[in-house]
């Protein structure tokens, strides 16, 4: 997601943020030619991204900071005049907050959106405060997300016992949801997940109860889809309750239906 996204805080009145999407011939030195040109014209490169489109052409997306008096259209035409350049598109980030060359964003195979953690936590809080069975509802919502994620990873890489945990951890870090430490035995389906800086617990504020049911559900969905077996994940410790970090316990879901203990809930909670 981050690859084609430019985000910065602050706003410089004398400059403008302009992105260029440059399709160029993939010849030795052609990319350098482009970057040299930008540098020579005082276009400060904030962020650049390369994409190999075909064997013959490449795509270079670059965010630049230009002086206010530079005409981006004129600048784009000049880039296009370079021998190695085939096509140039450009756009302006008027308020310099968030901009993306490609719209819509893509997160692991499907459309993604960016949101402030608070925006999502507000939804979670509203559900907790007003909706019956909010915890179950959030678990189910997370379950679906985790299942989709595991399905996607299975489709693009060899998800196996040596990498399933790292892939999940990388994803969580990549999308800013939290830093994971996962211990899970693929033979017994038991283990735990430590979440540091969970975006839910961080922003939620103080709570008497754990608040990351959505995340537990997500883990359960991911692991259930990966193992092909129902996995229970429950949060036993949550940063929102004053703990240092959040902890989720992994165990195989009991088979053969709901046993007495689940109805009575003595052992589960």
């Amino acid at each position: 997601m981050v690859r084609d996204l430019f985000t910065f805080a602050g706003f410089n009145e004398n400059s403008q943020i302009v992105w260029f999407k440059i399709i160029y011939s993939k010849e030795p030195g052609s990319l350098s030619l482009i970057t040299d040109f930008l540098e020579k014209k005082n276009a400060f490169i904030m962020f650049g991204h390369l994409d190999n489109i075909t064997q013959k052409t490449g795509e270079y997306s670059v965010f630049t900071e230009l002086n206010k008096d530079v005409d981006p259209e004129d600048f784009a035409l000049k880039i296009k005049e370079l021998e190695v350049v085939n096509e140039v598109e450009y756009g302006i980030s008027e308020y310099g907050m968030v901009y993306s060359v490609d719209f819509p964003l893509n997160v692991i195979g499907v459309r993604g959106v960016m949101a402030r953690a608070l925006t999502i936590v507000d939804i979670i809080k509203t559900l907790n405060q007003s909706a019956p069975h909010a915890e179950g509802l959030l678990t189910f919502s997370g379950l679906k997300g985790g299942t989709h994620a595991a399905k996607y990873f299975k489709s693009i890489l060899d998800l196996n016992d040596s990498n399933f945990a790292n892939v999940l951890a990388e994803l969580f870090k990549g999308v800013g949801w939290g830093i994971l430490e996962i211990e899970c035995d693929p033979r017994t389906y038991e283990g735990k997940i430590i979440v540091k800086d969970s975006f839910i617990a961080d922003v939620y504020g103080e709570s008497d109860q754990p608040v990351c049911a959505f995340m537990s559900g997500y883990f359960a969905g991911y692991l259930t889809e990966y193992f092909g077996k129902n996995i229970s994940v429950r949060e036993v410790s949550c940063k929102a309750t004053g703990k240092e970090f959040c902890e989720h316990i992994i165990s195989p879901a009991p088979s053969g239906g709901t046993s007495q203990e689940y109805q009575m809930r003595g052992e589960m909670r």
């Binding site: 915890e135 179950g136 678990t139 189910f140 559900g217 129902n230 088979s255």
Partner: peptide, 22 residues
Amino acid sequence: AMDTIWWTNSKYDMEDGKLQRN
């Protein structure tokens, strides 16, 4: 129907093509 012990949910339970007979 809507609980953290999600695997007992009948709607979910049908997805693997067999029911748990609770």
